[in-house]
Design a protein around this nucleic acid. Structure first.
Lengths: 215, 215
DNA sequence: CTATAATTTAACCGTATGGTTAAACCAAAT
DNA sequence: ATTTGGTTTAACCATACGGTTAAATTATAG
């Protein structure tokens, strides 16, 4: 057929749905087949086993998400712009792909054998070369130029990612403690971006009186 | 018997182990019984069903962890001390209880029905009264006194928790991308505390020239 | 000692699950 | 018209699983 509803893709779509709702162990092949609009026999005709289907479904989701994310990180002229675009970009992508976060949450619970391979592969060797060095050098140059304080770029990255992803990942808990918030709401998302940027930018920018060299 | 190895507790210990390794759906009652050193009949003699066992095991873990955590949050004289003790305390507890983080990760994947109840209950009504208002008022007073910039205390809390928990929660992924780090290592943990504190304190403290009123 | 509760043994039950098989059906390409 | 490969149907299989039962055994407390 190879039409718009190509069966293999429809199966992966259905598999993602079920895996992110129930996890690998909780998912049922029968349910995946049903949601894909086919039967169990055909499902196994396309994917040998549940394990294989899980691997391919998660790989597809993570690859798409992280490839786009990594491609969006471009060195910018000044630190402030770079930081703001990093945060905006990351939060926008997270809020538009909550299913990736949840899928990944299950995977992390299991120790993340699949995700480890996929993500390590993307981060280390995408088309534009390794991504982390680009990020790190951007900050190192900012530090050398006296634009920002001498923070550890790696820890700053952990902090940024942690701040950005937390509200989406922990949404089920947060909404129980703070019933008034809704991490999927646009207003909340924009506020979140602003608060993170303000905190981090004030946290890393050089004190007045420091060198404000431009290269 | 009621000795040190009281059976009910031994079962809960074993259940925690298995649930955090395999998740609810992936856990096997037989394995839990074996790890508790008993048989399936006795297991069901103590806990009617897997669901019930899961509920009680997760509730016990979360209650202990969050009660201790919440009790450790005490208002301090100055903002700097309060912030530092908050971060140190949280990170220490997380690094000493990685099993809680992982257990919670599985639970969040499933939407967190059990954790929602437990955590909301602890946060809203522990012995010292609701905890969040204490936290919020501490920062509100700091803002009113001009000691810190006017940040949103709620978002600051999300940022703090996100920064602290991220490296432990995402450890399986992080170690794949950065093989040189080990989030359970003491050296790393101390560095993490320092980096978070420096970032946040610089990020929220009032600029020079602002009011530095003490109450 | 005796009654009560904890624990074991071992079999058992119903059902769900992942996966397989074989035959038939159907649409498109040759 | 025939072949090919996607697709369905429906039955099937072995196993694993959650949970139960009943009887026997051991320990504990009164």
């Amino acid at each position: 057929m190879n039409g718009p509803g190509a069966t293999g893709e429809r199966i992966l779509d259905a598999a993602c749905e079920v895996f992110l709702e129930k996890g690998k162990a909780g998912a049922r092949m029968q349910e995946i087949a049903a949601r894909a609009g086919i039967n169990k026999a055909l499902l196994h005709y396309y994917f040998r086993s549940k394990e294989e289907l899980y691997r391919q479904a998660l790989t597809r989701e993570l690859t798409t998400f992280f490839r786009e994310l990594v491609e969006s990180v471009r060195p910018a002229g000044d630190m402030e712009t770079f930081l703001r675009s990093f945060i905006d970009n990351y939060i926008d992508r997270l809020s538009r792909n909550p299913q990736v976060v949840r899928f990944l949450t299950w995977e992390i619970g299991s120790g993340g054998p699949v995700a480890r391979n996929v993500i390590a592969g993307i981060v280390q060797g995408n088309e534009g070369g390794p991504i982390y060095p680009v990020y790190r050098e951007t900050f190192s140059r900012g530090i050398a130029a006296g634009a920002i304080r001498p923070v550890d770029p790696q820890h700053l990255l952990f902090s940024l990612v942690g701040m950005c992803i937390f509200v989406f990942l922990a949404a089920p808990i947060l909404t129980a403690v703070f019933p008034e918030i809704d991490p999927s709401e646009k207003e909340f998302i924009e506020k979140r971006k602003k608060e993170i940027f303000d905190l981090v930018w004030n946290g890393i920018k050089a004190e007045k009186g420091g060198n404000d060299v431009r290269d």
